[in-house]
């Protein structure tokens, strides 16, 4: 016998490799396809980095802080687009968060079965509507409504605040933020729902049995215990808002400027790429690719953080 008898107290080393040639080949093939996914992510970063070298070397880190955007003189800065991206995303989150999390709480804690299945399906279908269809609806329904009714009304009453000042364009940060809010709503609602459903039933009943009201149970047990899941939902939704393109490019007005008023036109990183890339040449193309690279790096960071948090919250 080649191998001696081992009766030690510790387990022997795990033997993983199969000796069956078919299994080895199969193992190699599936591993190869799995590695392809990893390679794609690496290749994405590498490709965009290489393509944006002319812009990177020309402007350096100052690119992030510069507001100039002049294709004629070849002066470019990213600040207006970073501002536009952050402003629309922040507005979208502020509008969508209470509605998404509230709807999730209603659906997990209060809704009868059939209401839950109907409303739940409808909220998820919101995610299925193509972003260009939201853009179309935004251009022909939302923007006129904002320009003629909502924005004048807000300006009249709150116009003293700089945020709500200026002429009602319709197209602008406000319209983009509203559309983005609709688009991130299903992400917020479904990830929050998952986190809330993971809270053990017994904990709710324990507090109810102490004489708590339904709301007190939701606040003290459900929302409290689902907190890290809610954070993950928020971050994931933010990730979606930062990179969303079509709806934004169609209603934001596409102007590389920074204004205090949310009614003013602006541009996001994604929207300026969509709007200008096919017409751009030379340095401007590299600049747009660098904006794409920034967007990619931010989205990688945001999504990695969100996934790690989500994994921890449901474990």
């Amino acid at each position: 016998m080649a191998r001696e008898l081992r009766t030690g107290m510790l387990p022997p080393r795990v033997r993983r490799a199969s000796i069956n040639w078919g299994d080895r080949a199969f193992h190699g093939i599936t591993t190869g396809f799995a590695l392809l996914i990893a390679a794609l992510v690496a290749l994405l970063v590498l490709e965009l980095a290489t393509e944006s070298v002319p812009a990177l070397s020309r402007f350096g880190p100052g690119f992030l802080a510069s507001t100039s955007w002049n294709p004629v003189t070849g002066e470019f800065g990213a600040l207006p687009f970073i501002y536009g991206t952050l402003a629309t995303s922040a507005l979208a989150l502020a509008l969508a968060w209470p509605i998404g999390v509230g709807a999730a709480a209603f659906l997990t804690e209060l809704a009868p079965r059939f209401v839950r299945s109907i409303l739940g399906t409808m909220v998820e279908m919101l995610a299925a509507v193509p972003s260009v269809v939201y853009g179309l609806w935004g251009v022909f329904v939302l923007v006129p409504l904002l320009r003629e009714r909502v924005e004048p009304w807000l300006i009249e009453r709150l116009g003293v605040l700089p945020v709500f000042s200026g002429p009602p364009f319709g197209l602008g940060v406000f319209a983009a933020g509203l559309l983005l809010a609709v688009m991130i709503l299903p992400t917020l609602a479904s990830v929050s729902r998952e986190a809330m459903s993971a809270v053990p039933r017994g904990q709710r009943e324990a507090l109810l049995a102490l004489g708590a009201t339904r709301w007190e149970v939701i606040r003290a047990v459900v929302l409290a215990q689902a907190r890290s899941g809610l954070v993950a939902a928020t971050v994931l939704a933010l990730g979606r808002a930062l990179g969303e393109t079509m709806a934004t490019v169609m209603v934001i007005g596409n102007s590389p400027s920074i204004n205090v008023s949310i009614f003013a036109p602006a541009s996001t990183m994604a929207s300026v790429i969509a709007n200008d890339f096919n017409e751009a040449t030379g340095l401007q193309k590299a600049v747009l690719l660098e904006l794409g690279l920034i967007l990619l790096v931010v989205s990688l960071a945001v999504n990695t953080a969100a996934r790690l948090m989500a994994a921890r919250s449901t474990r």
Binding site: I37, V41, E51, G239, E244, R307
Partner: peptide, 18 residues
């Protein structure tokens, strides 16, 4: 790979276009 797959799922599609 699971994490990278989820992350790839979250990459803005315009970036994939670039």
């Amino acid at each position: 790979v699971r994490l990278l797959s989820d992350v790839l799922n979250g990459v803005p599609t315009i970036v994939v276009g670039l």
